[in-house]
Design a protein around this nucleic acid. Structure first.
Lengths: 109, 109
DNA sequence: CTAAACCAGTTTGCGGTACAAACCGGTTTA
DNA sequence: TAAACCGGTTTGTACCGCAAACTGGTTTAG
């Protein structure tokens, strides 16, 4: 029996840090850098580089502005990003289902 | 709001290849190397090294024997392995739930 | 006035890892 | 007896996640 599960399709989201980021963003239209850092517990450097990757992948869009005199970075999911996140959960659910199925086949056969 | 999600606890299983392996093993008492390779679609080298990692982690136990004249490697989940796999799914479920919760809070507030 | 602390991030350096190619000891086929 | 096959393991490399160091500006302290 051939397990159908494509690691490459959502490889980006298999990194826990990125999955956390996407999960938070999935719940807001937009969050800023500091909020994301608090929510995920990542270091600034770490968060920054993950966001760059997600941006390159087209999963988030990043807009910079000034609030008063301070720089501020807003991050939001793109449609592609939202789709990828859903897709990722679906794949995991599906893998788990396949495991259960296999188990039942074993029980019978 | 602080996301509670510990990447380190099940980092090993965040690798898709390893999650596939564990999923298959979760359904059998024991599987052999060739079966695992077919089921997961991994290359031999890749599978071998992932199994070594899982063994070091105490998640699988590996026993070697000869079938006729050919070497044969049987792999099975340990109790720790089974527990880790369940734990992993739980963590993912939990993260997703937290996302949904956040979303509902946003809808209200 | 200026130096030290703070803010909001980005870049850099490094240790670790996933992957396939090369390899290995043996067995079967030609 | 040599070439192909079997069941894996080891090696080399390119990539990646992480925190420390840095950047460019702002506020506080003396």
């Amino acid at each position: 029996m051939e397990l159908r599960f494509d690691p490459e399709s959502t490889r980006l989201l298999h990194e826990p840090a990125r999955l956390m980021i996407m999960t938070v963003l999935g719940a807001c239209q937009s969050a800023d850098f500091v909020f994301l850092q608090r929510a995920t517990g990542l270091t600034k450097g770490n968060l920054s580089s993950h966001l760059s990757r997600l941006e390159e992948a087209g999963y988030v869009q990043i807009t910079k502005q000034f609030i008063g005199k301070l720089p501020n970075t807003q991050i939001g999911l793109t449609e592609a990003g939202r789709a990828a996140l859903e897709q990722h959960w679906k794949q995991l659910d599906d893998l788990r289902r396949q495991g259960d199925q296999l188990r039942q086949q074993q029980a019978k056969g």
